[in-house]
Design a protein around this nucleic acid. Sequence first.
RNA 1: GGUCCCAUCGUCUAGUGGUUAGGACGCUGGCCUCUCACGCCGGAAACCAGGGUUCAACUCCCUGUGGGACUACCA
Length: 480
Amino acid sequence: MMAPKPRVRFAPSPTGELHVGNARTALFNWMFARHHGGYFILRIEDTDESRSALSYQVNLLNDLSWLGLDWDEGPQKKGSYGPYKQSERLDIYNEHLQKLIDADLVYPCYCTEEELEEERQALILSKRMPRYMGKCRNLTADERKQREIEGRKHSFRFKVQPQVIEFEDLIRGAMKFEGEAIGDFIIVRSNGMPSYNFAVVIDDQLMGITHVIRGEDHLSNTALQLMLYKAFGFVPPTFVHHSLILGKDRAKLGKRHGSVSVGEFRKQGILPEALINYLGLLGSSFTDGREVLSREEMIEGFVLERASKSGAIFDEEKLHWLNAIYIRNCKTEDLIERLKPFLEQAGYKTDAVDAKWLYEVIELVKTQLTTLAEIGSHIDIFFDDKYIMTAEAKEILKKDTACQVVKAFAEYLNTAAGNPQENYLAAIKYTKEKTGAKGKDLFMSIRAVLTGKVHGPELDKVFVILGNDTALKRLKPFTD
RNA sequence: GGUCCCAUCGUCUAGUGGUUAGGACGCUGGCCUCUCACGCCGGAAACCAGGGUUCAACUCCCUGUGGGACUACCA
């Protein structure tokens, strides 16, 4: 008999930009689903009304789509396990809460935040672990009524039985937690919203999730969730906790480490396939050791168990290396399309320019690019309004030989009648013969005057793109 | 503090008792070349420490050390 198709989910909370760490979790889930021909489900965990925002949710879907991580069920995609937003599943949570109330596995807690904070501080002071000590656990019916009359709101807490929790993690192996340290935790808040640990268990169960693939930061939550699975009589899914992405200081990657959101990398001109490739590589490896992999190859070679157990530092340089590879492997027509927003932003009017000509320009500078955003500094030499003479170029042109070279070159060009390709070759030949200059003296001088820079693509190609007229225009100030 | 996780070049990793410890990024030497980039060839660079187990440990066990996560009416 064939194993049932796995159902996995990515369950972000729309409280900020999509972080690369979360994107990687999404990627792992997605690759796992695609590799096994299963289902990738997107669930929005928006039970924190104060932090969730619709704009973030829109962003999230955009970023995921941009990365190419398509989901089979979730927002904008109907499935038979919805709704896929927790804020729309409130009655489901209430039903389940009632079950636990009926089974006497939960109790109302009337403590205020201030009281809880006080308790926490007292415990810390006496060097004990800060946790809820169960003040409201054994309240009598009268005491509860009294608090209701006082108008106190209550949350619901789960009665934690001291126990050892064990489970098998697909990446980490046997996991064991001493339940002793866990206090009665809140499953429904005083505003009626479910807490994370409560909602996640119900949703994963009801949505038929077979593998919970998430970050290591959820490892200790698993113990609480397992208690809930048991309380409901649910069979827990397989848990898989991958390692975290770290900053240079080996702490969990966060805002203070610089760029951490998918949106930021997009704005910097990172290609989605490069980011996906990098994220897939980070903290994992594919069997044959190759590192530049297409989406299909990643799906094909993905083995969850190969994911590393230890955290991985985010290496932007390696991301850039991959990005450069994807840029130069990109078909020039496609690259131009991707480049357009960046060109506009840098002040280049792409519509005002001949498409064929632009194609030649991009084709020529492709290999120099690391990110799309730096396009401007590579093509400025081809635009009169962007062309400027750098200090290094001026230095080159101060030399006597340079002056002679420039004059001779211009002299030939002034009377030349061929196409740019022929003209360039002939002008170089003429200049070489007339001045005796060769090598660097010859080419660098011409490069300096033509592009205003001392670095750039092959001169002959630059000249052809520039054309006779532009070349002469730039030569003129140096020939008078 | 408590619970838990982790530990191979600077970084990402391969490695499952016997290897010259392999690859990639970065760094670096050279080639190509007017320059930069690309490309090609080469180099430096690692098994956290101490005990076991074993004929043999990077690999298995223990302890220590170091790093990290969690410790909310956030997810």
